[in-house]
Design a protein around this nucleic acid. Sequence first.
DNA 1: TATTAGCACTCTATGCTATCGAGTGCTAAC
DNA 2: GTTAGCACTCGATAGCATAGAGTGCTAATA
Lengths: 347, 347
Amino acid sequence: MDLNERKLKILQAIIHSYIKKAQPVGSRTIAKKYNLGVSSATIRNEMSDLEELGYLVQPHTSAGRIPSDKAYRLYVDSLMELKSISSLERKKIKKGLSKEIREIEQLIQNSAKILSKLTNYTSLAIAPQFKKSRLKHIQLVPIDERKVLVVIVTDTGIAKNTIFMMDNDITHDHLNKITNYLNAKLKGHPIEYIGSSLEYELIQEMYSLKNTINQVVPLIYQAVDELEEVDLYANGVTNIFNFPEYNDVSKAKAFLSFIEDKNLVVDMLMKSGLQDIEIKIGKENCYEEVKNCSLITATYSLNGKTIGKIGVIGPTRMDYSKVISIVKTISLNLNDILNQYYNRGGR
Amino acid sequence: MDLNERKLKILQAIIHSYIKKAQPVGSRTIAKKYNLGVSSATIRNEMSDLEELGYLVQPHTSAGRIPSDKAYRLYVDSLMELKSISSLERKKIKKGLSKEIREIEQLIQNSAKILSKLTNYTSLAIAPQFKKSRLKHIQLVPIDERKVLVVIVTDTGIAKNTIFMMDNDITHDHLNKITNYLNAKLKGHPIEYIGSSLEYELIQEMYSLKNTINQVVPLIYQAVDELEEVDLYANGVTNIFNFPEYNDVSKAKAFLSFIEDKNLVVDMLMKSGLQDIEIKIGKENCYEEVKNCSLITATYSLNGKTIGKIGVIGPTRMDYSKVISIVKTISLNLNDILNQYYNRGGR
DNA sequence: TATTAGCACTCTATGCTATCGAGTGCTAAC
DNA sequence: GTTAGCACTCGATAGCATAGAGTGCTAATA
C-alpha cells in the first residue's frame, strides 16, 4: 500500500514534532499546529493506518505515537528538506578548520570538536589510517651509541616515530646507507608492504652491512606493526545527557560504555560504507548497544583515496536535517583543506 | 577533645561498613557486626559525640550516619591498615606492564588501563611532559623539495615530529649543517629553552645559510610550541555507574563532563603535590565538580625527576586501603621499568 | 464515500494518605 | 559509665482516587 500525500504530510508532521519535543505525538497536536485542513479524527484514522504500515509506534494505548526507524528512513530518504546551514555556522566551521592545518591528526580532531559543538551530539572521527597509506620517506637517526630513531612519513602526511635500542653499537654511516636504500626501494609502496622479504634483499644488496641490517630491519617491521593502531577521536560524549531518552542511568551507561570501547566504535565506523554521507538509523546499526541511535558519517580523502571517517551519533530522534547538512559542510571543507594544503606540496 | 580508643573503633567500623554498603550506618549494625562489647545505646551516644566533632553526618534525623571528609582523612592518615596486594593482582600488574615497554606513552597508558581494571574506579594519567624535558636530539629531515620533517627527541624518551612546508627549496646539505649545529648547541638543555635567541646566534655562526635559517628556525619554535600540549589518559570512566552515589543522572553527568574536559583534569592533577602518594578527599579537591570525590595520585619519574602522574578518582566512599596499595604498587613498578629500561641506555 | 463530532474507554502521571520500619535521643534503672 | 526501654522522627513504599491526554468507534454529515 502506497502512502498518499496526506499520510506523508501527517507522518512528516509527527516526525517533526517528535524530533523537537521527544514526546509521543497525538492527533490533536497535529491538527492544531500543522494546518493540514482536516480534523483530529481524520488524522487519527490516518495515524492508525500508518501504525499498521509500521511507520508509527504506540508506547501504550492511550498515548500518542512515535516514529519508527522505518519512518525515519523514509523521512531521511524523501521527506526531509535539507536545512541550509546558517552563515554563522559556516563561519565557525571555516574559522575552526583554518586554525590547525599543519598536523593532519590535529585537523581531524579539530573537525570532530567543531562537529560536536555545532550539532550538540557526540562526534566521532577516525584519524587517517597509517597502514593504508604509502611510504613517502623513511629515516633512521642515531640518537646515541645504542639508540636509533625510526621515522616513517606517509603520503597522507602522517609522520610516526619510534625509538629502538640496539644490541651493538651502530655507525652513523651504516644507518645512512640503509636509510638511502630503504627510501629508494620502498618509496611509494603501501606501508603494509614493508615486511615481506626486505631483510633478505637488503643483505643481498649490501652484504658488508649484514650485522646492522639484521638488527635494524626487524625493528622496522615492529615499528610498522605497532603504529598500525587506529586513532579515534570522540567529542561531546556527555552530550547524550541532554536527551531525555538517556535520563535513565542504565541507558546512559550502555551508550557511554559502548563509546568508551574504542575497538567497538572503530569497527562500527569501519563498517559504514564509503559513500559521501552514510546514514544508519536505529536497528540498521550492527551493534546492539546503539540500536536506538542513528549514525551519520562522511568520509574524507586525499588524492581521491578515502583515508578516514568523521561523523555524529545520537538518538534516532535526531535532527537529521541539521546534522546532515553540518556533516556535509564539514567534510567538504575538510576535504578541500586536505587536498589544497597537503596535496600540492603544502603543509 | 581527643578521640578515645572506643570512638576510633566505632568510627572505623562505620567507615568500613559505609565503604562496603554505601548505606548510612546505624548503631545496631555496629553493635551486632563489629564485636565492640558494648550495646547499641552506648554506640549511639558515641556516634552522637562523633557527629558533634564533625566526623559523622546524618542525612536526616531517623537515618544512620555517614562518615564526613574529616573522618576519611583520619581514616587514611591513621586508622586504615594498608591491604597488602594479592599475588594475582601483583601478577597482573607485572604482566600488563611488561607488555609494552618501547614507547613510554604506551607504557603510561597501559598503566592507567591496569589501574582502572584492578581498582574498578576511573584512572587518570598524564603523559611525560614534553616541555619539561631536556633535548637529547633534534633532526631536520628533507621529505621532498619543499617539506621538512622536524624530529625532537627528549631525555625522557619521547620523540615528537612535525612536518613543515618551506617557501623555497632547501638543500639536504644545509639542513644537515643546521641539524649538527642545533644538536651541538641545544643538547641537554630544557626544551623550553629553545626559542630565545637561537635564530640570531645561528645566523652569526653560519651566515651563508642565512636564508635557510630564517625559514627553518621559526618553524622549530612553532613545533615546540605545538607539541607542548599535555596528553591525558582516562580509563574506566564509565565505572562511576557502578556506584550508587551516581545513580542520579545529573550527578553522573557532572562527573563525566568534568572528566571529559581535559584541561580541567590536567590542571587538577598538576595541582596535587609531588609526594609519592597524594590523597585528596572530597572538599580537599579544588574543583567543585569533584568535591564529593577522592583523588589518589602517584608520581613517576625518570632520572630522579618527576615527569608525570598517575592516579585514581572515585567517590569519597572509596576503598582507600585497596586503591592506595594498588596505586603504590603500580607506580613502583612503573618507576622501576622506566629507570631500568629507559635510563641505562635502554629502550 | 470521505470526513468529522462526540463519547466511552484506556492508561499514565500525579498527589494524597496510611503504614512500616530503621534509627535516633532521652530517661531511668543497673 | 552502661544499658534497656520507649517515644518520636522521617523516608520509603504501597494503595487509592483523580486528572488528563489520547485513542477507537459510531453515528451523523457533506
